[in-house]
Simulated assay, not measured.
Amino acid sequence: MKRALLALIIAGGVFAMSGCGSGDIADASQGDGTSKNHDGNGGDQEGSRDKPYAPSDVVHLENWDVSLAKTDTDATKDLESDGFNEIKAGSVAIQVRVSVTYTGKKSDDPGMDVVLEFVSSKGNTFDDSSGDGCLPEKSLQDIGNMYPKAKGEGDECVQMPKDAVKGGVWKISSLLGDKTAFVAMA
């Protein structure tokens, strides 16, 4: 009986967390401030996996404005040269500069709330929580707590099989938010 109850509690927690960050497509704006607003999560909408935003577009999450630079699709040598990163044989490390602005009312830490995952063209996801991460010189986790209108930058990187890079996109979400957006590498 206790095992059945424990299994039910665990399954309920997994079910509840499975919806986090997988709701509506987040709005975005171009560098000139032109808005790109969306309602829903349709595959043909800009910001979806099939039609990702451009790296320079600013994605508007619940408490964050986030933009990505062009992705370095082979940052392996740079990352291994620091002595902290060991990229697996047959894998490559990719890295992207992430710019964040806190738009909330209190304070928050982008390293704890902004979630960045790489989704390959085959649909496989790679991120630092799945053991595929690497340690950039300055990451979002190094920024610390931010207050309204504060800005920061950090690099995020992930390693994956070499054949997983082509055609992939970045998925940006907030840990406790309902909005997601997909952003192209270049």
Rank of each mutant, 00 (worst) to 15 (best):
I9F: 14
A75I: 00
N124V: 09
E46A: 13
G19M: 01
D74V: 08
D163V: 11
C157Y: 06
R97A: 15
N63E: 11
G133Y: 04
D57Q: 06
V158A: 01
G104C: 08
S139W: 01
F182D: 01
E80K: 05
M185C: 06
G167M: 12
I94H: 07
A69S: 04
V158L: 06
A16R: 01
D57V: 10
G177D: 07
K122P: 07
G144F: 03
D132G: 09
G31W: 05
G152V: 00
K106L: 14
A16E: 11
S174Y: 09
K171Q: 12
S22K: 11
E156A: 06
S35A: 15
L79V: 05
C157E: 04
A4M: 13
G133K: 03
A89N: 08
D65L: 12
L68M: 07
A16Y: 11
R49H: 11
Q95F: 06
P55L: 07
S174Q: 12
E153S: 00
T73H: 06
D108H: 10
T103K: 03
G21E: 06
L175P: 00
Y147Q: 13
E153Q: 01
G43N: 13
C134Q: 03
Q159P: 01
P52C: 07
V115A: 03
M146F: 00
E62W: 10
G23A: 11
L116H: 03
D155Y: 07
S107Y: 14
C20N: 11
A11N: 05
H60T: 14
E80P: 09
L79I: 07
G133N: 02
V183C: 04
C20E: 10
G111I: 00
M112Q: 14
A28F: 09
V58R: 15
M17L: 06
K105C: 09
H60Q: 14
I10M: 13
I87W: 02
Y147E: 15
K171A: 10
D155C: 01
I10V: 15
K138A: 07
L6E: 15
E86S: 05
S120C: 01
G83A: 02
D163A: 12
K166P: 05
E86P: 00
Q141T: 15
E62T: 09
V59L: 03
D72C: 01
L79Y: 04
E46H: 12
S130C: 11
S22Y: 14
A181L: 13
N145C: 08
S107K: 12
S29Y: 15
D132Q: 10
M185Q: 15
A69K: 03
F118P: 05
T76P: 03
G42V: 06
V66R: 03
T73E: 12
G154D: 03
A69L: 02
